[in-house]
Design a protein around this nucleic acid. Structure first.
Length: 888
DNA sequence: GCTACTCGGGG
DNA sequence: GTGTACGAGTAGC
């Protein structure tokens, strides 16, 4: 029988482990296979001549079933011969850590290997099983009540099957509504769940969603329950019946799942939402705000976490995320309204709350299903071997390590154990002293380049290719004084054994990954089915991610194979390469390299026509590549028609790419933020427009005029207030804030006006800064209130604190001075004064009234204090400068 | 310019 | 479960 592996775990039966494999067969039926007879083991390298002592020690241990001498290769440092090690086999995985720790401290043991590999992964590695991979099992049906599956079987033989297909998965999204007694976030110890909404893909018995509730009216998709206990019991029953493979929800890992599990525990309802009755689901909060759930036989995938990892947005609330990604609206119910609706006694209001909950679960589901958010992680599982759950939750190091284990074992190498905390701090100190140098960044020719084209050349997969071309691997590193033809010396002087003597494992793995990636990319070009094309793209991305993780892994102090020399060897090769290329381009070809970072170089050519530039770029690429070794080649894929460089790592470019013989253009920005959560929309809009004018029209004067126009509109109150709203969130009760914070001051104000509608803890407050002569933080105001009362916004604040800082960087790179930037005119001269002072000296600290001593962060436009006194410039020393701020 | 600390998302 | 844990963005020197 063939199944796709979704999850594995093990149970202990008669003091021996039984591995359980949960999967889906070709008809998408659920299968659970039991594999008996597989036992945990690890390796010991005895100190010189002390193998006998180790054996005597092991023979005294009742947990040990057997031990035997085996020949294994040490993973660190090149050696021609394997070493004699002792392989210990135990009966129970749970006893391994104890034995491992006692062996580690035994004086006759030099090093212990593979003694910290999860039993299920030990099993999967030995049987070549990957998460989401297909296997063929010889098996016989078995009767059991311990697992919930369409079929349960005893497995006698397993072999991996190579298949790119995926079984149809069943998805269920969960969303709960709760009421909070405290007023803050609900607490499962205190507060109960009032609504559970579940949504399904594919449909569950013809229904897209079901809402469980203790109030409201029964219908096809609304189930009225007596109490919370019944609601939770029914949720369990629905889960059993529908039998989802994937459980999702928006922020389910940090809210819904822990909440539900805690309520189940408190109400003594079994927590068996997984595919077995003998193991409860659990969540563990690792560090604050970082919980992870485990539901046996299923996968918990948090759509919030998936969106956050795969898209770059300003905010990640369900409202914004579904609007952008799904073009769907969430039903809006402010959380303060939930209890009002719930307790209203009004059927319609309760129905509205029910539909709100339903929509939330549907959106959470749609995100995962419609945006195919799991595809990349499914591919990562197939490649690395990790279970899907761990591909979703784990980091890059976990993936690399799991893959390394399999590949090392294939060639009789053993993997080291993870370093303990004292070893990690030792490595951190080493890394601190020796340092890990990064890529080389060419000094940029700051400013606008629009007099000709820019040819952009990149090394494709630079670091992975360096592993390959220098045969860099922990297993090939040579540390002694040896030299000679068998040894490759890298530019920084690190040495590795030549590939024809012995190929490194990392170079070998990377060769496979790079090849697979080009295959996937090629297949993508001809694939017409949109769905399949997306899967190929996910695979291609997974391959890129995984191959790019190897370099970082070797420099990660918690890695089993952290080797700083390798990380340093790689970046040094990279710097050497890009250096050589730059030198060739500038000194031999006679072009100007205007910028470059790590693996890329931007070359200015006189041609202005795109096709001519394309020809020239290709020629430059060919000339460079003919001088490089075959393994390291540069690619020419894009031209910049104009290129605005602000500093290292910050630039904007008008990019042109040739696709199927046609030119496609795009603005490319690196390191220039146009959206930031503490900037109002006007800033983003003005920045984008300014950059666009500069790049596409090449007219810096026009850009400046545009900017001056925005400032003018601002002072003349012509900017819609919506574009001036700044949002910040309230994280704790307003009274407990130590300092004065603008948005908190506004909340206090709003509470005084109407405590009912004032935002509370956890809410985001949108505010604007209005004119006035008080401290900035006192001049925050509710945008609606401003509209209603026709208050004026403070243009000085918006120019000074919002617009100017980012825009100034752009104009300064273009060679403008601040006074040119601020223009002339009465208001502007004040702005100029405010701007100029802190730049000249850093004694500027705000404004002060000469008569009453009131302090202002920005000067009142009247130039006078409320008391009528003159405003002067204040310095930190307390001394007030004699300069009086002119009135406007 | 760098390092330390905070906060997200959910009700 | 043979366990292990974030990361961007902002404030503060």
């Amino acid at each position: 029988m063939k199944i796709q592996v979704l999850d594995t775990d093990y149970i202990i039966l008669e003091d021996r482990p039984v591995v359980r494999i949960f999967g889906k067969d070709e008809n998408s039926k659920t299968v659970c296979g039991f594999a008996r007879g597989y036992l945990p083991y690890f390796y010991i390298l005895p100190a010189e001549g002390r193998a006998g002592d180790i054996e005597r020690f092991l023979s005294s241990k009742p947990d040990v079933i057997k031990y035997e001498k085996v020949l294994k290769r040490h993973p660190r440092g090149f050696s021609r011969e394997p070493k004699e090690m002792i392989k210990v086999t135990l009966r129970n995985p749970q006893r391994v850590s104890e034995l491992r720790d006692s062996v580690k401290t035994h004086p006759a043991a030099q090093e212990v290997f593979e003694a910290d590999i999860l039993f299920k992964y030990r099993f999967m590695a030995d049987y070549k099983i990957s998460g989401m991979g297909w296997i063929d099992m010889d098996c016989a049906d078995v009767n059991t009540h311990t697992v919930k599956a369409d079929r349960a079987v005893n497995v006698t033989k397993i072999s991996p099957v190579d298949s790119a297909t995926n079984a149809q998965m069943k998805y269920m999204a969960v969303d709960i509504e709760t009421l909070s007694k405290s007023g803050g976030l609900p607490d499962p110890k205190e507060d109960e769940i009032i609504i559970i909404s579940l949504s399904f893909f594919p449909e569950n018995r013809g229904q897209k969603s079901i809402v469980l509730t203790t109030r409201g009216i029964n219908s096809d998709t609304v189930v009225r329950c007596l109490d919370e206990t019944e609601m939770l019991t029914r949720m369990n029953a629905i889960t059993d019946d529908y039998d989802p493979d994937i459980i999702t929800g928006f922020n389910i890992n940090n809210f819904d799942m822990p909440f539900i599990l805690k309520r189940l525990e408190i109400l003594k309802v079994p927590r068996t939402i997984g595919r077995c009755s003998d193991k409860q689901a659990y969540t563990k909060e690792i560090i604050k705000n970082r919980a992870r759930s485990s539901v046996p036989g299923r996968v918990v995938a948090d759509s919030y976490q998936l969106v956050k990892k795969n898209f770059s947005f300003k905010r990640y609330g369900l409202t914004d995320v579904s609007r952008i990604l799904l073009k769907q609206e969430k039903l809006d119910v402010a959380h303060s309204e939930i209890s009002k609706l719930w307790n209203s006694g009004d059927k319609d209001k309760i129905a509205r709350l029910i539909e709100y909950a339903r929509k939330d679960a549907e959106l959470a589901l749609d995100l995962v299903v419609k945006k195919q958010l799991l595809d990349k992680y499914i591919e990562l599982s197939k490649l690395s071997g990790l279970l899907l759950q761990d591909s979703l939750d784990g980091g890059e190091a976990t993936r690399v390590e799991n893959l390394l284990l399999r590949e090392f074992n294939k060639r009789d190498y053993v993997m080291p154990c993870k370093p303990d905390s004292s070893e990690i701090s030792k490595k951190e100190r080493e890394k601190e002293d020796q340092g890990l140098k990064g890529g080389f960044v060419l000094t940029p020719k700051v400013g606008l380049h629009s007099d000709g084209l820019i040819v952009v050349l990149d090394f494709r997969s630079m670091y992975p290719s360096i592993f390959r071309s220098y045969n860099i691997c922990p297993t090939t590193i040579v540390n002694g004084p040896e030299e000679g033809p068998e040894i490759i010396k890298t530019p920084a002087g690190y040495k590795f054994i030549a590939k024809d003597v012995q190929e490194g494992i990392m170079p070998n793995i990377l060769g496979g990954l790079l090849e697979e990636r080009s295959k996937a990319k090629r297949a993508m070009k001809t694939e017409t089915d949109e769905e399949l094309r997306k899967v190929l793209d996910a695979k291609q991305l997974a391959l890129k991610l995984l191959s790019n993780s190897f370099y970082g892994y070797t420099g990660y102090t918690k890695a089993k194979l952290y080797i700083l020399d390798i990380a340093n060897a790689i970046t040094a090769c990279g710097r050497h390469l890009i250096h050589t290329v730059t030198d060739t381009v500038e000194n031999r070809f006679g072009y100007e390299a205007v910028y470059g970072d790590t693996d890329s170089i931007m070359i200015k050519i006189p041609e202005k026509d795109l096709d001519a530039g394309w020809e020239k770029g290709t020629e430059i690429m060919t000339r460079i590549n003919s001088e490089l070794s075959g393994a390291m080649q540069m690619e020419f894929e894009k031209l910049f028609k104009s290129f605005l460089i602000l500093t290292k790592k910050r630039y904007a470019a008008w990019k042109f790419v040739k696709e199927n013989g046609l030119w496609k253009e795009k603005t490319e920005m690196k390191g220039i933020e146009t959206v930031r959560r503490d900037w109002c929309e006007l800033v983003s809009e003005t920045m984008n427009k300014t950059i666009e004018i500069i790049l596409k029209r090449g007219d810096t004067k026009e850009a400046l005029n545009y900017f001056n126009g925005v400032m003018k509109d601002l002072t003349e109150n012509k900017i819609p207030i919506e574009k001036l709203v700044i949002t910040k969130s309230i994280t704790k009760s307003p009274s407990s804030y130590a300092g004065v914070q603008p948005h908190i001051e506004l909340v206090k104000k709003m509470q005084k006006r109407n405590s009912q509608d004032a935002p509370g803890v956890g809410d985001r407050v949108g505010y604007v800064i209005i004119k006035g002569n008080q401290l900035l933080s006192k001049r925050t105001e509710d945008p609606d209130y401003v509209k209603e009362k026709r208050l004026e916004i403070d243009p000085v604040y918006y120019v000074e604190n919002q617009l100017l800082p980012p825009i100034e960087r752009i104009f300064i790179a273009l060679g403008f001075t601040k006074s040119e930037l601020l223009g002339k005119g009465r208001q502007a001269s004040l702005m100029e004064l405010m701007r100029a002072r802190p730049a000249q000296s850093n004694v500027f600290d705000g404004f002060v009234c000469a008569s009453c001593g009131d302090i202002f962060s920005s000067a009142p436009l009247t130039g006078l204090c409320q008391c009528g006194g003159k405003i002067q410039i204040k310095t930190p020393s307390g001394a007030t400068e004699k300069i009086t701020v002119p009135a406007v």
